[in-house]
Amino acid sequence: MPSTSATLWIVATPIGNLEDFSPRASRTLAQVDVIAAEDTRYSGRLTRHLGIDTPMISLHEHNEQARIEQVIDRLAAGESVALISDAGTPLISDPGYALVRAVREAGFAVQAVPGPCAAIAALSVAGLPSDRFVFEGFLPSKAGARRARLEALADETRTLLVYESSHRIEKSVTDIAAVMGAGRAVGLCRELSKLHEQSVVMAASELAVWLAADDNRRRGEFVLVIEGAPPIERADADIPLDALLAELLSLTGTKQAAKAAARLTGRPTNEIYARALALGE
Rank of each mutant, 00 (worst) to 15 (best):
residue 243 A to F: 10
residue 234 R to F: 10
residue 250 S to T: 15
residue 226 I to R: 02
residue 219 R to N: 00
residue 197 E to V: 03
residue 169 I to D: 03
residue 224 L to D: 02
residue 142 K to H: 12
residue 253 G to A: 10
residue 237 A to E: 14
residue 249 L to Y: 09
residue 248 L to S: 09
residue 276 A to M: 05
residue 217 R to C: 10
residue 176 I to G: 01
residue 264 L to S: 03
residue 196 H to Q: 01
residue 244 L to A: 08
residue 249 L to Q: 01
residue 253 G to K: 07
residue 266 G to V: 13
residue 212 A to P: 05
residue 173 V to P: 01
residue 259 K to Q: 15
residue 207 L to C: 09
residue 164 E to L: 06
residue 150 L to I: 07
residue 233 E to C: 01
residue 223 V to W: 01
residue 152 A to Q: 14
residue 260 A to H: 11
residue 241 L to S: 08
residue 163 Y to W: 10
residue 228 G to Q: 02
residue 265 T to G: 13
residue 171 K to V: 11
residue 208 A to N: 00
residue 231 P to W: 09
residue 268 P to R: 00
residue 156 E to G: 03
residue 157 T to P: 13
residue 218 R to W: 05
residue 235 A to N: 02
residue 204 A to P: 12
residue 258 A to I: 00
residue 155 D to Y: 14
residue 262 A to F: 11
residue 185 A to F: 07
residue 251 L to E: 13
residue 163 Y to H: 10
residue 159 T to V: 00
residue 143 A to D: 03
residue 270 N to E: 13
residue 178 A to M: 08
residue 215 D to H: 10
residue 265 T to H: 10
residue 164 E to V: 03
residue 211 L to M: 12
residue 237 A to T: 14
residue 141 S to V: 00
residue 214 D to H: 04
residue 263 R to H: 09
residue 174 T to N: 04
residue 242 D to I: 07
residue 207 L to W: 02
residue 152 A to C: 04
residue 196 H to T: 09
residue 246 A to S: 15
residue 259 K to D: 12
residue 218 R to G: 02
residue 212 A to F: 11
residue 173 V to C: 06
residue 226 I to G: 08
residue 196 H to S: 09
residue 222 F to Q: 02
residue 261 A to M: 02
residue 196 H to P: 03
residue 151 E to N: 13
residue 231 P to K: 15
residue 180 M to P: 01
residue 229 A to V: 00
residue 271 E to D: 14
residue 245 L to M: 08
residue 210 W to V: 12
residue 145 A to C: 03
residue 274 A to C: 01
residue 262 A to H: 06
residue 255 K to W: 07
residue 198 Q to C: 12
residue 203 A to P: 06
residue 260 A to F: 05
residue 211 L to Y: 04
residue 188 L to N: 07
residue 234 R to M: 13
residue 173 V to S: 08
residue 184 R to H: 11
